[in-house]
């Protein structure tokens, strides 16, 4: 039994490209196109953006896929170190998980670059939370928390600019979910694990990375003399 000869480099290209994500999937898995050094360079831009947003907007990137607008201003050096620490911890934990649970060939540069690129929605959220943009709707809430009036809960339930706050919450949830999806696909592509195994490993590694990034706040604060 034989068939027509359809082999050659072009056939291999077709065979390889059949496996690549297309269309809207590229929004959550761009890592077949953005990988290696390209991912690292783009990722460094994302991290640099989060550092700038943190310092100028007073935003604390104190977790893998979350950020906070502290009611009291924090030192710029502390705010600048938080996104870098969170990125490095996430890359290290996911890289370690990949090394432990995947038998595929892996590259450190993919973990560093892809995990940084996956933080793009967090960078975007930080920009939206700048006081000159949607962040101004958080100021009345922060003032309330600072004053701590007896009817705090009642007043928090009916804050000024409720519609804008609801919109901001919705955008935040979407961007956090987008970050989680991007980080999952960063692990999938950097490690070469199967989808099911990558999902289980991702859930565990994300939890560990989140806890470690919170624990890292203590030595960071001590090192900067914030006691």
């Amino acid at each position: 039994m034989s068939t027509r000869n359809e082999t050659g480099p072009e056939a291999v290209q077709q065979y390889l490209r059949a496996d690549e994500p297309r269309g809207w999937m590229l929004l959550v898995n761009p890592f077949r196109r953005i990988e290696g050094l390209r991912a690292l360079l783009l990722g460094l831009l994302v991290v640099a953006d989060t550092v700038l947003v943190a310092v100028y907007g007073g935003i604390a990137y104190d977790g893998v896929a979350d950020l906070h607008v502290p009611p009291h201003p924090l030192p710029p050096s502390f705010l600048a170190l938080l996104p870098v620490t969170a990125w490095l911890i996430a890359a290290a934990v996911l890289g370690l998980a990949g090394w432990l649970f995947s038998r595929s060939r892996q590259r450190v540069v993919d973990y560093l670059g892809m995990v940084a690129v996956a933080r793009f929605p967090m960078a975007l959220l930080g920009v939206l939370l700048l006081p000159s943009l949607l962040g101004r709707y958080l100021e009345p809430i922060n003032r309330l928390l600072e004053q701590n009036p007896p009817d705090l809960l009642q007043r928090l339930l009916h804050p000024p600019g409720l519609a804008a706050l609801a919109l901001l919450s919705l955008i935040s949830v979407i961007l956090v979910l987008w970050t989680a999806a991007l980080t999952y696909f960063a692990l999938l592509e950097a490690s070469g694990m199967s989808k099911g195994r990558a999902l289980v490993v991702f859930l565990g590694a994300a939890l560990v990375a989140e806890v470690l990034s919170k624990l890292a706040l203590i030595p960071l604060a001590l090192a900067l003399g914030l006691g």
Partner: peptide
């Protein structure tokens, strides 16, 4: 050589 990404080749 094939003009595709490293993860694509590694996955196949």
């Amino acid at each position: 050589r094939l003009g595709v990404s490293y993860p694509t080749v590694r996955s196949r």
